[in-house]
Design a protein around this nucleic acid. Structure first.
Lengths: 131, 131
DNA sequence: ACAAATGATACAATTATGGTATCATTATCT
DNA sequence: AGATAATGATACCATAATTGTATCATTTGT
């Protein structure tokens, strides 16, 4: 069970690279060259980051991507949510139906606590920490 | 991202049932009746629990399963490991090759810390807590 | 106008998870 | 001893999530 999937991992590497480029616009080609990430995959993910307001994109010749915010404002938890959906260690679904013991389930309570801790930790890591 | 998969979930439910049956031997049929878990799937998983020394099995007419240990001695973490493999929030693999920055990776260090915490928590929950 | 970039989107491959089927083996009961 | 009721072993299949590819449209700088 992974906390971070490949998309998120790639995105982090790419974002670090972009962050280090300061105010210069970085193209996909440059990222592919230095990070060895499959091009179409990377493109798709960068486009998503653009939509979600993490990157700012520039079309046309000389175009590419820049960070849309300061690294300090970019939390790992947000990236995980973008690529892996809402953080949920617990599902409480059984054969497509919500488990009827949700309310009083001891295990659920314990896992909910763990989840709160993990989210708290992830909320304390920003892109700046990885530079 | 789920902390507990269906196998583990089913196993927990089944183990609770078996635990509540005290020293009586419980057959797969009884478990299927009351837990509505697909029979062949449950069977496979109980067999695995038997191999791993969590359950004790009895063949032949009137056979079935009993707990091999006291509920207090049965940790959730062990079940997770049985059905989901060794606990590892971090993979540090990229395209089948270990990531070269493993040593100094800031993110890895943070996730390792989270992992230690989660394992600690899971090590503190036993089957007895769920009865 | 052209070329170099991203935007949108649909598709394909691989892997993990969830589930099924079948035959062999063992133990009990008569 | 033989029939039956249980688990043991194992191989297979289905579905969903993850990972990766391909293609055409749109925008922009020269």
């Amino acid at each position: 069970m992974k906390l971070i999937t490949r998309d998120t991992d790639y995105a982090l590497r790419a974002l670090c690279f972009v962050a280090k480029s300061k105010d210069r616009v970085v193209s996909v080609s440059q990222l592919v060259d230095s990070l060895k990430i499959p091009r179409p995959f990377l493109r798709k993910n960068l486009q998503l980051l653009n939509k979600r307001g993490v990157l700012k994109s520039y079309k046309g010749l000389g175009g590419g991507f820049k960070l849309a915010r300061k690294p300090r404002q970019l939390f790992i938890s947000e990236l995980i949510r973008i690529f892996q959906g809402p953080f949920q260690l617990n599902e409480c679904f059984l054969k497509k139906r919500p488990c009827p013991h949700k309310k009083e389930c001891v295990l659920k309570k314990k896992i909910d606590n763990i989840e709160r801790y993990v989210i708290g930790q992830l909320d304390s890591i920003t892109l700046a920490d990885l530079l």
